[in-house]
Write a protein that binds this DNA or RNA. Structure first.
Length: 362
DNA sequence: TATGCGTGGCG
DNA sequence: TCGCCAAGCAT
């Protein structure tokens, strides 16, 4: 899509008006968030980086307590870099997408080694950091360093898709939206306050122009929002429906002879729940229990299970209490990295939510 | 380009 | 209840 010269002046006026409205709205409606400085005051780059990593595909509500915990325990990036990785993983337990935690730790070390402990300002340098992709690099540049970087998250995508009534399905629409957004966001004349600007757009998307709920009466863009005028703001951006498979597996609660200790597995370095602790399980990808339950009919209690939903499949995890002798007779025992934990310590063990659910029904 | 990767909240 | 969705990245 090319903008003709004849339209450029009115296009510019439209952009100025749009951006002014956004900033004016933000003056009155900015959310107060732990990682956000007062308006006009620059937030600490460490806080911006940490919060952006935590906020990847994760809600503000879920992130808040984790952010507070992290900065209390590791006040500076250098502190985080020096931490034990198991401590970082433990602090992250429950937040999900655990590769972010491993990359966060690695990134802290990269920042200390290559940039003397300071978050770099250059786009290229940011993109070289572990766990930092196009969005996060843009967000750090915009929010921490007040640079007019292209910063497009789900909120901004939605606000612009609706405002310009973009009918193209996601993710094909990303290029189109990117081209649409650039003149608003990446021009110093149009966007003199990049930090406030992108945060304003994200706040608007998060509180007014929401995925399943629109409050157009509160929106500063409503009179010119093409999707609202067309009467289908809620339907944008368009996405194709996707279904996820349902799987089943067995989780083993293995006790030693004295019933004093329980077997805990350290999960593999890669894959689902990588490097997290948990109870030993049969493969979480093997399909239905009925396919192979014959091998476990003697220990399987079909009434004790937990349901859990991952991004790409649903899991029904049956819980089986067995002896060490029994477990050692299964094919699982040889292939896992496990250790015995006292029952007393089970409550304090940091677990991903799937296994927290299991623990809660023991 | 498509897929794998958690979790909790909401309509 | 249940499907959708959140400040995406790595491969």
């Amino acid at each position: 899509m090319k903008t003709s010269h004849a339209n450029s002046i009115s296009d510019s006026q439209e952009i100025v008006q749009f951006n002014d409205s956004i900033l004016e709205w933000y003056d009155k409606n900015a959310r107060i968030l732990p990682w956000r400085a007062r308006q006009g005051v620059a937030a600490k780059p460490y806080h911006v980086w940490l919060s952006e990593i935590m906020l990847q595909q994760t809600t503000v509500t879920a992130v808040k307590p984790y952010f507070e915990k992290f900065i209390r325990r590791w006040p500076e990036i250098a502190d985080l870099a020096k931490a034990e990785s198991v401590d970082v993983m433990d602090m992250w337990a429950g937040l999900g997408y655990y590769s972010r935690a491993r990359n966060l730790h690695k990134c802290a070390q990269q920042i200390v080694e290559k940039y003397d402990g300071d978050v770099p300002r250059e786009e290229k340098a940011l993109l070289g950091l572990a766990g930092v992709g196009p969005y996060t690099a843009g967000a750090i540049g915009s929010i921490a360093f007040n640079q007019p970087r292209l910063t497009i998250d789900g909120n901004i995508e939605r606000v612009f898709a609706r405002y310009h009534n973009v009918q193209t399905y996601m993710p094909e629409a990303k290029k189109e939206l990117s081209a649409l957004i650039k003149p608003y966001m990446c021009d110093e004349q149009m966007n003199p306050q990049p930090s406030d600007y992108v945060q304003a757009l994200m706040d608007l998307g998060a509180t007014v122009c929401q995925p399943k709920k629109v409050q157009c009466g509160l929106c500063p863009l409503s009179t010119k929002c093409a999707a609202r005028i067309a009467g289908h703001a809620l339907e944008l951006p368009r996405k194709k429906p996707k279904s996820v498979p349902q799987r089943e597996a067995i989780c083993f609660i293995v006790s030693d002879d004295n019933n004093a200790r329980i077997l805990i597995e350290r999960r593999p370095d890669k894959g689902l729940l990588a490097q997290m602790s948990g109870f030993p399980t049969t493969s979480l990808y093997a399909g239905e229990v009925h396919d192979w339950a014959d091998a476990y009919t003697d220990i399987l209690d079909s009434h004790r299970f937990v349901d859990h939903v991952f991004t790409h499949f649903k899991l029904k995890l049956y819980v089986a209490k067995v002896s060490a002798e029994y477990f050692n007779g299964t094919s699982l025992s040889a292939s896992i990295d496990s250790n015995w934990v006292d029952y007393d310590q089970l409550d304090s063990l940091k677990l991903p939510t799937l296994f927290s659910k299991v623990r809660s029904i023991l």
